[in-house]
Structures are given as C-alpha cells and as structure tokens.
Amino acid sequence: MAGTASPDARADVRTCEYSVTARHGLKVHTRPNVHSKVVGVLKHGQRPWADCKKRGFTEIRGNVGGVELRHGFISVKYLKLIRVIAEDSVSAGGDRQLLR
C-alpha cells in the first residue's frame, strides 16, 4: 500500500555531511519543494549536515549556524557528499556519534 511508512521510519535514516556546490548559494525551504517559502541561503562551500539522500530534497540536521535553518530542506542536486556522520538509533533525536 502506498503511504504506509512506519511511525519510526526516521530511525533508519543516516546523517551525512555535504558541501554546497551551488556557486550563488543554495536556498533553504520550509518544505521539500521549490514552491515553499525560502527561509535562508547556504553559501557555496558551506558544509551542512543533512539526511543522506541521493535525489530530491533532504532535511538539514545541523552545522548550519542559525537555528532557523535547521530542519529546512535543500536540494541534493547542489550538494556533494563529504562523509557519513551518524546513523539515528532513536527517531526522537538520540545522540549521534561519528562513524569511523
């Protein structure tokens, strides 16, 4: 059935560190689409932490400075994967540790 994700689907999401490749900055949206409100812009070369994804939009999890940008959405098209940071073991913001 479509749309039957488990309540703790977030528990399987990894967090990655990315580098912004967009030369003129990358807009941060309130929802995962280009039509939603823009709440800020990440600079070229900035290294946000976000859910590991290969396409579409990803949710920012940290390393962006202002709290207002955290949990915003950015397009993966303009990101370069640097490394995997952590895997969530608890969907409600459990402690994250570096994976080596």
Score class of each variant (00 low, 15 high):
M1L: 00
A2W: 00
G3M: 01
G3V: 02
A5S: 07
S6K: 11
S6N: 03
D8L: 07
A9Y: 12
A9L: 06
R10Y: 09
R10H: 08
A11W: 00
D12N: 09
V13I: 14
V13L: 15
R14L: 13
R14H: 12
R14E: 10
T15L: 13
T15V: 14
Y18C: 05
Y18N: 02
Y18Q: 04
S19I: 11
A22L: 07
R23Q: 12
R23C: 01
R23F: 06
R31F: 05
H35C: 00
S36K: 08
K37G: 00
K37I: 05
K37D: 11
V38Y: 01
V38C: 01
V41I: 11
K43V: 01
H44C: 04
H44P: 02
Q46T: 07
P48A: 02
P48I: 04
P48Y: 03
A50T: 06
C52P: 07
K54R: 12
R55L: 04
R55P: 00
G56A: 04
F57K: 04
T58V: 11
T58D: 03
E59G: 09
E59L: 08
I60K: 08
I60R: 10
I60W: 05
I60C: 06
I60L: 15
G62E: 03
N63W: 04
N63D: 11
V64Y: 05
V64E: 02
G65R: 10
G66P: 05
G66E: 13
V67E: 15
V67G: 12
E68F: 12
L69K: 13
L69N: 08
R70H: 08
H71P: 01
H71T: 13
H71D: 13
G72M: 09
I74A: 02
S75R: 12
K77S: 08
K77F: 05
L79W: 03
L81I: 09
L81A: 11
I82S: 10
V84K: 15
V84H: 11
E87D: 09
D88A: 14
S89K: 14
V90Q: 13
V90L: 11
A92C: 09
A92N: 14
G93V: 06
G94I: 02
G94S: 15
R96H: 10
L98A: 10
